[in-house]
Amino acid sequence: MRHLIDPLDFTREEVENLLDLADRIIADPAAYQEVARHKKLATLFYEPSTRTRLSFEAAILNLGGSVLGFPGADVSSAAKGESVADTIRVISAYADIAAMRHPKEGAPLRASRYSGIPVINAGDGGHNHPTQTLTDLMTIRRRCGRLDHLTIGLCGDLKFGRTVHSLIKSLARYEGIRFLFISPKELRVPSYIITDVVEPAGLEYQEVRSLEDSMPQLDILYMTRVQRERFFNEEDYIRLKNTYVLTEDKMKLAGPNLAVLHPLPRVNEISISVDDDPRAAYFEQAKNGVYVRMALIMTLLGLPDPKQKEGN
């Protein structure tokens, strides 16, 4: 049985097959509206995340399946002290596939070891968020036409930002990727990401402070929110939350083919005035997230692709 726990659980070829499937779904969504009929997705959300949960729910509903689950730990058996291992064993009897969001790092991996159904990591603490990564890769590929030979700027909270870590791991598998890590020193990318991922891949990278200086070099700008919930100390959060704000003026420094991504929700790190710029790709990214999750559910459940059967 396949799970998706770590962004590298799928090979590069498997990721590209999945993105191809997502592209086919976008081209003809009606062809896929019954493929998961009678299949149930359990959304096990131990911390609130409206958009990731709704994106999963939209995905299974678009495929003709149904959904059950809980939106927060306080309304689940976790509040009674049940272990993740026990919860997933029970849920395996109720659903065909599960998406788990948990504040503790490694919880979905723990669940997958006891599960009778495929488990999708929908975000575990500051660790990984592989379906956001698939969404990011899909958006980059649709915008740039490729996933290699790109200069990617990652900006903001690179320390606790799990979407950043997952994206770096995935992009490090492609040739000619150049990273600009743009952050305050307190929120620098963890050293193990550099020593275990970026350097072994032989990729070029720079750690910089200035967003303005980086803008002209970028094919992709990946903005992130400084997340209050990742800080033990409120003072540190308040001091760092306004370090980077992307504005129209800063957008003028970038090339015409830049794509600005953001995993959302944003607070104030992207000015609303940037939303109408054609280079702003973050709402399109959110839409892609539903399609890529549809493709993922189909892949993990082994559901046949109606368009491929027709030989398209």
Binding site: S83, A85, P103, K104, E105, G106, A107, L109, G125
Partner: peptide
Amino acid sequence: RCITSVEE
């Protein structure tokens, strides 16, 4: 923040 800190 690791699951090992809370899971029985």
